[in-house]
C-alpha cells in the first residue's frame, strides 16, 4: 500500500463524508427555515396558551412566517404573554390583526395562526415589539366538554 494510494483513499473517505453531510443538509433537514435572516418581535396576550411551546411555528394561512421565541406571565394578574420572532419579509401586520392558537390536525402540534386585519388610513402597522390586540386563546378540552354538557342540560 503505497503512500500515494493511501492518500487517495483518505481523500475518497473525506469526499464521501462531505457527500453524506450535503445529503443530510439538503435533502433531510428543514433548510427553508424562515426564522433565519432578519426577524422582528411581535407579542400577543392570551388567556390560555394550551400546548403552545417555544419554537412552535407562527403561520399565516398555513405558511410559516416565524416562530415563538418566549412564553411568560406578565403583570399583577399573571397573564400569559407570547413573544414571536417574525421574518422581516412580512412586516406589514396592521393592529387589526388577530392571533389565534390553533392545532394542526386533530392531535397535532399547536401553532399560532395570524390573520392580518384590514388596512385603513388611521390603522397603524405593527413594528418591532408591537402587540397584537385581538387574540383567541387555545381551546381547553375541559371547557368544551363543560359547554357541551351545559348545552345538553338546557334542552
Amino acid at each position: 500500500m503505497t503512500t500515494r494510494t493511501m492518500e487517495l483513499m483518505v481523500g475518497v473517505f473525506a469526499a464521501a463524508a462531505i457527500a453524506a453531510l450535503l445529503f443530510l443538509a439538503l435533502q433531510v433537514a428543514n433548510t427553508s427555515d424562515s426564522t433565519r435572516g432578519e426577524t422582528y418581535t411581535l407579542i400577543a396576550k392570551f388567556d390560555n396558551i394550551g400546548g403552545l411551546k417555544v419554537r412552535s411555528p407562527v403561520k399565516v394561512g398555513g405558511v410559516v412566517v416565524g416562530r415563538v421565541s418566549a412564553i411568560r406571565l406578565e403583570g399583577d394578574y399573571y397573564e400569559p404573554v407570547v413573544e414571536m420572532q417574525i421574518s422581516t419579509r412580512y412586516n406589514r401586520f396592521p393592529e387589526t390583526s388577530t392571533a389565534s392558537i390553533l392545532t394542526s390536525g386533530i392531535i397535532g402540534e399547536q401553532y399560532i395562526g395570524l390573520e392580518p386585519g384590514f388596512i385603513d388610513d388611521f390603522i397603524e402597522i405593527l413594528g418591532d415589539g408591537g402587540e397584537i390586540p385581538n387574540t383567541n386563546s387555545a381551546m381547553v378540552l375541559e371547557n368544551l366538554i363543560g359547554q357541551f354538557l351545559f348545552s345538553q342540560g338546557e334542552k
Binding site: F13, A14, A16, A17, A19, A20, L21, F23, L24, V28
Partner: peptide, 15 residues
C-alpha cells in the same frame, strides 16, 4: 476525525 465522518455516512446510507 474519522468517527464523526463515519457517523454522517452511516446516517445518510441509513436514511
Amino acid at each position: 476525525i474519522s468517527m464523526p465522518l463515519l457517523a454522517l455516512m452511516f446516517n445518510a446510507v441509513g436514511i
